[in-house]
Nucleic acid binder design. Structure first.
Lengths: 124, 124
DNA sequence: GTGCGATATGCACCGCAATGCCTATCGAGG
DNA sequence: CCTCGATAGGCATTGCGGTGCATATCGCAC
């Protein structure tokens, strides 16, 4: 082991959380993106919630909040039918899903760079 | 008013939160930076807490957590004396205070740029 | 050696957001 | 027309971070 107590160990990592606010409060972030992502691949909000390990109640509430705040319909919902119902991303939903991911990815890469510089400055 | 419900209004803004983790949990972020900042200009932890509008209890606990986790002494504490005591940033504390601010500033600038690109992609 | 005000720390309590429980409603299919 | 499973949503509960309270210790000045 390298043995030190004062310096910056290797398991110090940067954290970042991004979101999009309307009038100051967050209405879309990583959690809701994951939800869109899960719906996209599962075909229903319920299956998406189960897949993510969160309650349907929360998933539904979160999505509603985002849709109301942004005035966007992310999902095309269908109730009833033999399967009980289903949900899929709308055209605009897919667009958000795709572009937000890119936004997040760009920032993830950037935080790694900025943190490396920070660390460089600290260790001299 | 511009009148729309589906598009992206002008008061949609990006949010970002940065922090530094050790073994996965955050030990230093904006809150603790503000604390260092307040101590720097006030000269005591108590005055800093009052200045920030948080309880001394919390300020003290937060700082202790960060110091223990990182193995760094941010403050040089003095108990007793006619004034009761005081605290000031150590050399290393000032360095963190300065460099973390730069790290944060760089990311703030970056998120503005990335979000502008995101918005540009969305409105076409 | 007494008083004062800040550091130091445990513990009990409180407020609010997240979590979960329960119920209603919908509609294709048999 | 009844079943089934998912959407829809009200409402009770809980979990946890922050606040407050209490107590101890320190050391300079008087």
């Amino acid at each position: 082991m390298s043995a030190k107590k004062t310096a910056t160990p290797q398991d110090i990592t940067p954290g970042i959380r991004l979101w999009i606010s309307l009038h100051g409060d967050g209405v879309f972030g990583h959690g809701k993106w994951q939800l869109l992502d899960a719906v996209h691949r599962k075909g229903s909000l319920r299956a998406a919630a189960d897949w993510l390990g969160i309650s349907y109640r929360k998933a539904w509430g979160d999505l509603r909040k985002a849709e109301r705040a942004l005035g966007i319909h992310f999902l095309e919902r269908h109730r009833g039918g033999i399967s009980g119902g289903e949900s899929n991303l709308t055209e605009e939903g897919r667009k958000w899903h795709r572009e937000y991911a890119r936004f997040q990815d760009e920032m993830d890469a950037e935080v790694a760079r900025a943190f490396a510089r920070f660390r460089g400055r600290m260790e001299q």
